[in-house]
Write a protein that binds this DNA or RNA. Structure first.
Lengths: 220, 220
DNA sequence: TTTAATAGTGTAATATTTACACACTATATT
DNA sequence: AATATAGTGTGTAAATATTACACTATTAAA
């Protein structure tokens, strides 16, 4: 009638054209030395949302990131000591905002690192399964979520946006059709600025307009 | 680091044109005498899926129903004794299959009864919140889920199907457009049978073709 | 036979999706 | 100055899907 209770975090970012997930190297038995999702035990009198904030910080050094619940995983056989119920949370962050800040502030993990979701090492516990479920959800919800814009910098090119879509959907899209469709949605603001420091024709930059996006999905 | 662990079940059916949810009257403190989702504690060495089957049976008398996970709820203040973490599960069943069988087989609940989701009594704990989340999910996923057919009998009329859609989406649909669209999807089989015992023009019956439905969503 | 209740059906206008290829531009290199 | 490189930016026609909209047909009961 009691169970251990943990939180695991699936933290995505986008870098060099690839969807990345943040993993930590465990320093504790079981699975010591294995890569795993950042996660830890919830305290007795701690609200789940507070635990998510605390644990994501302790395991990765990242602060103030908003996480959304994915699902609960509770296999009795996940751990020799008996059941450990974990609730998985997901978030998406801008790689550039955090690139040098990702470092555990606890001894439970030795290091943290970004891995391309298509080239993951063998993971501890059922963490691969958790990631798979989370990728499915991301794919299904992409058309009505702000996910792509949470992964990109404030100003981005349409090619970058298309790459994010292609990574999440795991398929190539047609450039002209993609641009037509995304611009038609009306929540991208075209800027009078272009990319800097590229050795080819610089692409125009765009911004995401949260308000217009919200309006689009408010009434329906 | 430990928590109580329960399962709560959100069980829907469709009857007399309305989406119904199955509630149980509690016979235990706290909230004794209140209506609540059928739910109970998970045993120490019990797999979560087994607990779902056992608890849904004990609280409602229903056997062999497949439930899908909705989310975990874990407020510290849900219960005076401290945190009780509950994982909510959802299912959809055919009203006619179960109409006389719904009865708790435990003393923890006094009775079970169907309520229209638009006219619920005040519920114990945060159960209204759980139902709201579940209704949202049902709405969002209706176009790519088998939900409407799980609520209907094996043979059904297009009007019944449209009513299910209207209840889940909470809006009226145009009859001609609805029929055009649903028939175009190609997974309804038209039967050479009509409704019996109706005091007006009998409607044609249809069946849901699972295979064709699955094919439709397999490759994409 | 009439009434009441629901079943069943089509079309035109508009919007969305798909398939598809080449010229343009900025920089780096010689 | 000329050229190579690498990625940007753009249009159209065909097919498909969506929307708005109203009357006739059928059955059983009165």
């Amino acid at each position: 009638m009691h169970t251990h209770f943990t939180i695991d975090c699936v933290i995505y970012s986008f870098h060099e054209g690839q969807l990345k997930v943040l993993l930590t190297e465990r320093n504790e038995s079981p699975y010591s030395g294995w890569w795993a999702l950042p996660g830890f035990f919830v305290n007795k009198y701690e609200e789940m949302e507070d635990a998510v904030a605390r644990i994501s910080y302790e395991m990765t050094g990242l602060k103030d990131i908003f996480m959304e619940q994915l699902a609960a995983f509770a296999g009795v056989k996940r751990h020799p000591e008996g059941r450990i119920l974990t609730v998985a949370y997901t978030t998406l962050i801008r790689f550039d905002d955090v690139k040098n800040k990702v470092k555990p502030v606890t001894d439970y993990m030795r290091q943290a690192n970004w891995f391309s979701v298509s080239e993951l090492p063998e993971l501890a516990f059922d963490h691969q399964e958790i990631i798979n479920l989370s990728l499915d959800k991301l794919k299904r919800s992409i058309s009505y979520s702000t996910a792509p814009f949470e992964l990109l910098p404030d100003k981005f090119t349409l090619t970058q946006l298309q790459q994010v879509y292609e990574e999440i959907l795991r398929k190539k899209l047609d450039k002209r059709n993609f641009r037509k469709k995304i611009m038609n949605l009306g929540y991208l603001k075209e800027l009078n600025e272009v990319q800097q420091h590229v050795s080819y024709r610089a692409a125009r930059l765009y911004k995401f307009d949260k308000r217009k996006f919200a309006k689009l999905f408010s009434q329906e």
